[in-house]
Design a protein around this nucleic acid. Structure first.
Lengths: 218, 218
DNA sequence: CCTACCGATCGGTAGG
DNA sequence: CCTACCGATCGGTAGG
């Protein structure tokens, strides 16, 4: 029973799965499908327990094909995290710009917008990218890790002046740096328990967090 | 080059590693060493990326020997988490009993003791068990998951009446259930950034958290 | 707990 | 992006 003794077609290809429909035929579309499916699987099963075959099957490819788009499984993981951070930064920027016409200089308003945007990033529909980033960073190599850290610093940089203003005004008694770690932690943990079907809205969640940290929803 | 063509001793055994020193020879001691090393490796590399061979080598066993102590790699993971929860419950109980002679009925004192004990559980030296539990629960099967959930509920049960008392007195404006999730999240996240070599003491950390949530260290 | 091993699977690749 | 495949590794086991 050597491998040479199997000249006929092996039934290893995923059958019955529609491929090459109109909206899939495009260019980098397949790459993004891989990212999306990888994110979902990495989140549900963990990076180590997800095989590249799982991911290939999820988008209707054969087992070797993901490596046409990504050099390695590890590169795919990093791409998921990078994509997550880029869209998080975009959403955060948008939230702060929308505020520019309103009470832009009120720290309580700003911190609320930051928290609300962060809940969006963490819990918005189809957002598996950031949860993967939060729980699978160990699997990155040194170069990937520092590249990701730069994006994370950029993201958290928006929080710093706001928290410092709140601290200076006495509204926040904890030092800004420590407060940022504790507050972001409280929010990040919500990916573990928040249930979009049962729990309150993200707006309610933001109210609750504002009240907990600043004694009023602002 | 079949496997039968290698009659001589294969150099696959870990050499130069001291085995059977005096304090290792005992009974269930080896089992606990496996737990300890597994916890450290699971935390550093993740469950999926840790091999049973890694663990065996870390305690000076050969590759098949961990399975004498644990039925499967998965059982080993669960044992790590269970051990973590049992010691966490023990530490929490001890903290609350020590308080019984003091201002036992003051919620602000009680929540402080709970938070301080929790930081011990999360960040105390050699405590890799709970961090593993926090980040690798996905790998558990349904039965293991529900068994662990029971222990976690028991642990969190101590927080409920305290937070409810604080809410009733107006000291905590967020509903108790939501406050518990947010506060435990803020604390749990500290395993990601706390550095025993650089950061403040656990006592200082507790002060900061108390101030953030309740506007005074109590 | 070691010896010696296996079946299965996995990440990855050459060539088209 | 598929075909066809490989080398390496991994969890696990029988027998002692």
């Amino acid at each position: 029973m050597t491998t040479l003794a199997q000249p006929l077609i092996q039934d290893k290809r995923p059958r019955g799965r529609p491929r090459k429909t109109l909206d899939e035929r495009d260019d980098g579309n397949r790459r993004h499908q891989l990212l999306q499916c990888a994110a979902r699987l990495f989140r549900r099963k963990g990076f180590g327990a997800t095989t590249t075959r799982d991911i290939a099957a999820a988008v209707g490819m054969h087992s070797g094909s993901p490596f046409y788009h990504f050099k390695s499984k590890n590169d795919l993981l990093y791409a998921v995290m990078e994509e997550g951070m880029r869209s998080a930064l975009e959403r955060q920027d948008k939230a702060m710009q929308a505020n520019a016409t309103g009470r832009a200089d009120e720290p309580m308003m700003q911190i609320r917008l930051l928290m609300r945007a962060h809940f969006d990033v963490l819990l918005g529909p189809g957002n598996d990218f950031i949860p993967v980033m939060l729980y699978e960073s160990r699997a990155l190599n040194a170069r990937q890790r520092s590249a990701l850290a730069a994006l994370q610093s950029e993201y958290e940089a928006a929080w710093v002046p706001v928290l410092e203003a709140l601290h200076a005004s006495g509204r926040l008694q904890t030092p800004a740096a420590l407060a940022r770690l504790l507050i972001l932690g409280a929010l990040n943990w919500s990916v573990q328990w928040f249930d979009r079907k049962k729990a309150a809205s993200l707006e309610d969640l933001t109210d609750a967090a504002m009240t907990l940290f600043f004694a009023e929803p602002a």
